[in-house]
Design a protein around this nucleic acid. Structure first.
Lengths: 144, 144
DNA sequence: TTTGCAAATGCAACATGATTGCATTTGCAA
DNA sequence: TTGCAAATGCAATCATGTTGCATTTGCAAA
C-alpha cells in the first residue's frame, strides 16, 4: 500500500504534519468536510493542531495538486473531500449534492456534445447534475 | 401589461422603492446578479440608494415570494435572478466562450437527466459546453 | 382625505469564512 | 550535516451575510 506521506510526495508536496493529518482525515471520511469541521477535529485529535490559516493553505495545496476536490454547499461554504484518483480518467457523470457538497459518480454515460453554430470550437462539455443526496434528503437538509 | 408594482403586490409584498428597483433590475438582466453587483448598480442608478442590509432583505423577500431565484456560484457567493428569466434559461444548453467570457444559448435540446440512486433528489441538470465562439476563433483568441 | 399600524428601512454591531503580509521554522535533497 | 525554498504561525484585513432596534412608510380602513 501507499503511505499518506508518499502520496503527498508523489504529488510534489512536502509531507508536513498538517498535510498528513488533513489528507488522512479526508481519506477516512465519506462526507465532504468544511474548513471549520476540519479545524475542530484537528484541535481534538492532532498532536500539534495547525493554525487556521495553515489549514486553508493545506486545503488549497491539496486541491491544486489534485488530491482533494473543493465544492461549495448551499450555504456557500467550501467543502473538501479526498479525490478518488483511480477513476479520474473514466468518463462518467457527477452528481453534486447541494446540501453537503458531496460529489457522487453516476453510472450513466455522459451525453454527446451538441452541434455548435458555424465557427464555434468545442473544448469541453460538462453535464452538471445537481440535487440532494440520499443522506441529506433524509436529514431534511433538502429544501433551500 | 403588468407593472412591477402590481407584480409585487400580487405576490403579497409592499411596493417599496428598493423592491421596485431590484425587481426591475433582475427582470432586465439575463445574468444572475450578486448582492455586491446589485448594490453597485443601485449606487449608480437609484435615486436614493437603499442600505446594504435592505438589499439583503429585499432579495430574501423576493426569493421567499417566488419572484426571484437564489443560487450559489462556484465562489460561494449568492446570486439572484428574476424567476421567469431563470425559467427561460432552464431548458437551454449554454455555450461559454473561454475567450471573451460570453454565454450563448444553443438550440440543441438538453440531454435527459440520468437515473439517480435511491433517495437522491434531482434539482437541476445543466449541460455546460465550453470552447471558443466564432468571433474569438477568428481573432485567434482561443481560451486560456 | 386622513390615519393607524404592521411592515419595511437605516444604522450599528456582530458573525463567519477566507485571504494577505511577513517573520520564523522546517522538510528534504544535495 | 546543512542550505534554502517551501511551509507555518500570527496578526490584520477583507468579503459576505445576519441581528437588534429605533424610525419611517406603504397602504388599507375609516
Amino acid at each position: 500500500m501507499e503511505s499518506i506521506a508518499s502520496i503527498l510526495r508523489n504529488a510534489g508536496l512536502k509531507a508536513t504534519p498538517a498535510r498528513l493529518f488533513v489528507l488522512r482525515l479526508l481519506a477516512e471520511t465519506t462526507k465532504p468536510l468544511s474548513h471549520a469541521e476540519i479545524e475542530a477535529l484537528a484541535r481534538k485529535e492532532a498532536d500539534a493542531p495547525p493554525d487556521r490559516v495553515t489549514l486553508y493553505r493545506v486545503l488549497e495545496a491539496l486541491t491544486a495538486a489534485g488530491l482533494a476536490t473543493k465544492a461549495v454547499d448551499r450555504r456557500g461554504v467550501a467543502r473538501f473531500s479526498a479525490r478518488d484518483t483511480h477513476r479520474r480518467h473514466e468518463r462518467h457523470v457527477h452528481f453534486h449534492c447541494l446540501g453537503c457538497g458531496g460529489v457522487f459518480c453516476l453510472t450513466a454515460p455522459p451525453p454527446k456534445p451538441p452541434r455548435l453554430p458555424k465557427g464555434f470550437r468545442l473544448e469541453a462539455a460538462e453535464f452538471d447534475v445537481k440535487g440532494t443526496c440520499a443522506q441529506c434528503a433524509a436529514k431534511g437538509k433538502s429544501g433551500a
